[in-house]
Design a protein around this nucleic acid. Structure first.
Lengths: 217, 217
DNA sequence: CATGCTTGGATAGTGCCAGTATCCAAAGGA
DNA sequence: TCCTTTGGATACTGGCACTATCCAAGCATG
C-alpha cells in the first residue's frame, strides 16, 4: 500500500506520517521506484500503536521512539526488555533530595515497599520509584496523610492489577507480541484505570454527599 | 510576606509566581504601597497546590485555574462541586463516533458499567466516560482483549480506591478542606497509583520471566 | 536629603514541541 | 503528450510555560 492509503486506513494525515518517518517512529516503506514506496500491514499496526502511545498515552514523540526501540532490542532477555521499555516511559523529574518533605516521603515509601514484600526494587532502580517519591512528597507538603496505612491499599491493588496485566501479556503467542503487549497494556490501561477511578469517585460521592448543602463552616 | 519570600519558601521563581498571578491561579497579595504587596500563609498553601497540580498532575495552567475555580464555587452543593472540579480536569478528546472500534468499545464499556452496578453515569455525563471509551477503542484497534471479563478487575479495584479516597476526604474537618482534598487526592494519587502499578509490573515480570532467554520464535 | 539598590507590575521574548505547508523532481494515468 | 499524483526535503506555524527586560515607586544608608 502507498503512503496515501496508509494515511486513509489509519486516519492519520500524510504530513504526520511523514513526520513520524523523519522521527524514526516508523520504518521507511519498501522503495518501489525513486518516488514511490510500499507499506505493509505491519506498518499500519505500528502506526496505530504509535498513535495510541502518543494520543491516549500522552507520550512525547521522542519518548515513543525510545520505548519502541527498547521493546525491539533483541539483545536483552524477556524481563530486561520489559524493564528497558518501562524505563523509557515518561516520568516525573527526580525529587529534590535536600527537601524535608522528600525525606519523609522516601521513608514512607520504603516502609510501604517493605510491607508489600517487594524486594529488589532498590537493586534495579526504576524511575517509577522517583515518581512515586515525588508524588508522595507533594502530598506531604500539602499536609495529607501519606503513612503506610493510607498507601497500602494502593500498593495491594497495584499488585493485583500487575497480575491481571501479565496474564493478558502471556496470552500472546509470540515473544515479540508479548513485549508489545506489555508496553501497550502498561500505557493504555493507565487511562482506563484512571477514568474508572474518577467515575467511581462520582458514584461514591453521590452516595455520600448527594444533595447535601454546604454548611457555612 | 513579600513576593520574594513567598518565592523562597515555595521554591518557585518570582517570575513564575508573577505569571501565575497574571493567569489568575493565585489571588493578588494585599497591597501595602503602590509598589509592594503582602502575601500570607494561604497564598503559600495555594501556590503549593498549584505547583502540585501542574508539576505532579501534569495539568495545563489554564486547566488548573478552572479546577480551582470550580472547587471554590460556593453556589453548588458538595457533590456538585466535586463533579464540577472533576469535569474541569484534563481529558482525552472525545472518541470519533463514526469509528468501528469506538462502537465496540462503547458496548464493552456499557456492559462493564452495568455489571459494576453504577447507575446514573449516563444521566450525569462525565468526560471521564469519553476518555474511557477512547482508551478501550485504542486497545480494540490493536487487537487486545477488552471484553467485560478483562475490564471488570479494573472497575472493581477502582471502586475500592474511590472508597478509600473518600474516606480520606471525610477526615478533613471543613467543607472547603474536603473539596480541596478531593481535588488534590484525585489528582495526586494518580501518579502514586500508576508508579506503584509499574513497580508491581517489574516485580511480577521478574517472578515470571527472570533470566528467560528469548526464543527465536 | 541624595543616591543607589530593591520591589512588583507590564510587556515582550524564548525555547520546545507537534505537527503543517510548500516546493520539487520523478512517476503514473488519460 | 500533458496533467495530476507521489514521496522526500525543508521551512514555517501555533500553543504553551515560562523568562527577561523595562520602569516607576519605595526603602535603606551615609
Amino acid at each position: 500500500m502507498r503512503l496515501a492509503e496508509l494515511s486513509e486506513r489509519s486516519g492519520v494525515s500524510t504530513a504526520t506520517i511523514k513526520y513520524y518517518l523523519r522521527e524514526g517512529l516508523l520504518q521507511p516503506g519498501h522503495r518501489v521506484t525513486a518516488t514511490q514506496a510500499a507499506y505493509g500491514e505491519e506498518h499500519l499496526r505500528r502506526l496505530r500503536l504509535v498513535r495510541a502511545l502518543i494520543q491516549i498515552g500522552k507520550m512525547p514523540v521522542a519518548v515513543a521512539r525510545e520505548v519502541i526501540a527498547a521493546a525491539e532490542d533483541t539483545s536483552l532477555d524477556h524481563h530486561m526488555r520489559l524493564g528497558a521499555a518501562t524505563r523509557a516511559l515518561p516520568h516525573a523529574p527526580d525529587p529534590a533530595e535536600d527537601d524535608e518533605a522528600t525525606g519523609i516521603a522516601r521513608r514512607s515509601v520504603d516502609a510501604l515497599l517493605e510491607q508489600l514484600g517487594w524486594p529488589g526494587i532498590h537493586d534495579e532502580p526504576s524511575p517509577s520509584l522517583g515518581t512515586l517519591v515525588a508524588s508522595v512528597a507533594a502530598l506531604v507538603r500539602l499536609g495529607y496523610p501519606c503513612d503506610t496505612a493510607h498507601l497500602l491499599p494502593y500498593g495491594r491493588l497495584a499488585a493485583e492489577l500487575a497480575v491481571a496485566d501479565l496474564d493478558t501479556v502471556e496470552e500472546q503467542p509470540t515473544t515479540a507480541g508479548q513485549i508489545e503487549a506489555a508496553v501497550a497494556l502498561t500505557v493504555l490501561h493507565e487511562p482506563v484505570l484512571l477514568s474508572l477511578r474518577r467515575l467511581a469517585h462520582i458514584q461514591e460521592s453521590a452516595r455520600r454527599f448527594e444533595g447535601r448543602r454546604i454548611p457555612p463552616d
